[in-house]
């Protein structure tokens, strides 16, 4: 059994006076893929954005309870959000390449963390593009603008950009929902490769995707964690009626 990398205990979250997460307790193991599923608006994005403290940017967002990364409290006083995000990367629903060259996009992270050495940067860019299965397609076009890539390529570029910072955890928030089926398949393959080296948390609307890529699955409903367990068990033998209804497409 692998170690627990991220653990939340009784996590509550409010946007202003509206409670978006209620007493979420779950543990995400190291170097496994944890999928989070649930109907729209149930708090999936909200939850994973807690893990790298992206919700710090949202005004009026308040959190109680515990969220631990490698045993340290993510919201503790001595936790530096900037340092935390170096270790916990994130890929968003809509590909968001910076309006710069492909090279500069990937070198961005290492550069903001102080790396100036050209050879080192070149090496990181190449490695990251290879690891995200993009090198064959864009290896010769590093000076080209990243916004000229296709949507699927942009998303893999965003993954490469995240890998360049050498995180331990990668959060994916519906990474394929803006993509065509072929690009989606490529990203799923990529996630299956990456899980040997990274702890992955992925939010998805696509049940098959959750079944294909994840080891554990959490089902959220109206801000509550309804059920959490091995993916196989959740999909084949769910404990709760509402989980079964959702998975079989009977609501949401």
């Amino acid at each position: 059994m692998s170690e627990i990398e991220i653990e939340s205990r009784n996590l509550d979250l409010w946007y202003g006076s509206a409670q978006a997460l209620k007493k979420i307790s779950m543990a995400m193991p190291e170097k496994k893929v944890t999928a989070i599923i649930g109907p729209s608006g149930c708090g999936k994005s909200t939850f994973i954005r807690c893990i790298n403290r992206m919700n710090d940017l949202v005004k009026g967002c308040r959190i109680t309870g515990e969220l631990l990364f490698e045993g340290a409290d993510i919201y503790g006083n001595d936790m530096d959000a900037v340092e935390l995000r170096k270790k916990i990367g994130m890929v968003f629903q809509k590909p968001n390449p910076f309006p710069m060259s492909i090279y500069d996009n990937i070198a961005y992270g290492p550069r903001v963390h102080g790396l100036r050495n050209k050879e080192e940067l070149d090496r990181i860019v190449e490695e990251s593009l290879k690891a995200s299965a993009l090198w064959d397609e864009v290896g010769d076009l590093l000076d080209q603008s990243a916004v000229d890539l296709s949507g699927g390529q942009q998303q893999r570029l965003c993954i490469a950009r995240t890998l360049a910072v050498k995180p331990k955890v990668i959060l994916f928030d519906e990474p394929c929902s803006a993509l065509d089926p072929i690009s989606t398949a490529k990203i799923e393959d990529l996630i299956n490769m990456l899980k040997h080296d990274y702890t992955i948390v992925i939010v998805t609307h696509n049940m098959q995707q959750a079944a294909r890529v994840s080891d554990h699955t959490a089902f959220f409903l109206l801000g509550e964690l309804v059920e959490f367990g091995k993916t196989k068990q959740i999909f084949e033998l769910p404990d709760k009626k509402s989980t079964e209804d959702y998975i079989t497409g009977r609501f949401g």
């Binding site: 968003f92 910076f98 995240t162």
Partner: peptide, 12 residues
């Protein structure tokens, strides 16, 4: 999205 992308990479 550009701001989020940058923050998520650990930029200040």
């Amino acid at each position: 999205g550009l701001r989020e992308g940058s923050f998520a990479l650990g930029a200040t």
